[in-house]
Nucleic acid binder design. Structure first.
Lengths: 199, 199
DNA sequence: CTGTGAAAGTGTAGCGATTGCACTTATTTA
DNA sequence: TAAATAAGTGCAATCGCTACACTTTCACAG
């Protein structure tokens, strides 16, 4: 009985079903392409009904993103617990670069590159991923505002939050992510420093 | 025979059908809410078949955005033909603020405010509007690069383009658009000036 | 004029994602 | 062990959207 896995047989079976679905989805999507696979196919392949599939996942796109939940907390933590001397834009740049190399279902999965390509080449998935981040924009804005002692609805904090999550999309499609991130965040860095000398 | 309306009866009828659909859609959406109206309802109300509706509009959301076409040209022009002494971020801020007060189907329509509210309150429409702008991000990035003599795929130009169109969404949901735009673009302004002293 | 081909429009049938409903089965818990 | 709970099932239906085969209408050349 591991710490992360609550004992009950019921919960274990539930988790297993969910995992079967996620695995089936990833496998089929990689094999045939997202649009060439129906939710029915995924359900059949995982040996459950379509109804059950939708009890576990909010939609077809969600099948490949199994970990939305921690994103927000980590994002906020990246700002709040950044090392002393590091600016907020810097902290966000580092966090996003780090995340990019973890976003796979299993970090150890050799199909990681394929997964990333799948997401980038499928509009529906690309958009979904972007919205996943944008959903936490408000929380991030609030964290930034707190970090610099600005009012909670400060516009420039909201702007920095938005721009930072958008920068992710920009960086992803570039061959040299590190360099792209540096350039994109340099813009934010300088702009931010100008209005928040203490940030 | 006006300059804007090509003579042929055929083309006139086509334009009229399209207009009927757009009118019906706006009316019904405002009355019942976007999600409570089906494309069938719109088609019936405009007295055409559903098939015809989709011959005129690429999807349900497109029914309320009748003018995507000029957006890109205007966006590029805003950068290319900006008054001397005006920075690129400034030019984009002004352009977006201007656009925001024109985006109605008819600028003279008293229902303008309702329309804006509808779009902002309906996720599907908000997202669609955002994508409408994002679709022209590449063209804008290119125009910016040309304006400052940077390579066509320069990352900071792409970043400025993306941030500028994203700033729009930020500004829209604020009570004081002018002030919000000033703050959001101040960030870009300073960041941009730091790396492009000649921009 | 006229007839012919393109363009606009129609109705039906259907697909794929998603939901609601009534139901069975398995697990938990009192 | 029985009642309560939650997972899973199958089916029908909705909704956006497309394909198809068809009719009507207009433009234009002969």
């Amino acid at each position: 009985m591991r710490v992360t896995e609550p004992a009950g047989r019921r919960e274990r079976k539930k988790a297993q079903t969910r995992q079967s679905l996620a695995d089936a989805a990833l496998e089929l999507f990689l094999e045939r392409g997202y649009d060439q696979v129906g939710v029915k196919d995924v359900a059949d392949h995982a040996d459950v009904s379509v109804t059950t599939l939708f009890k576990h996942f909010s939609g077809k796109e969600a099948l490949v993103f199994d970990q939305d939940d921690d994103l927000e907390a980590e994002l906020v933590a990246a700002v709040r617990e950044r090392p002393p001397g590091q600016s907020i834009p810097q902290a966000l740049r580092e966090h996003l670069l780090l995340k990019q190399t973890q976003l796979a279902i299993h970090a150890t999965d050799p199909r990681f590159a394929d997964f990333t390509r799948l997401v980038q080449e499928t509009p529906a998935l690309r958009d979904y991923a972007q919205r996943m981040w944008t959903r936490h924009e408000a929380a991030l804005a609030k964290a930034i505002a707190e970090a610099v002692g600005a009012p909670e609805d400060d516009v420039s904090c909201a702007a920095l939050a938005r721009f930072a999550v958008e920068a992710r999309g920009l960086v992803l499609r570039h061959a040299e992510p590190r360099r792209a991130a540096d350039e994109a965040f340099a813009l934010l860095e300088h702009g931010w420093a100008a209005s928040h000398p203490n940030g």
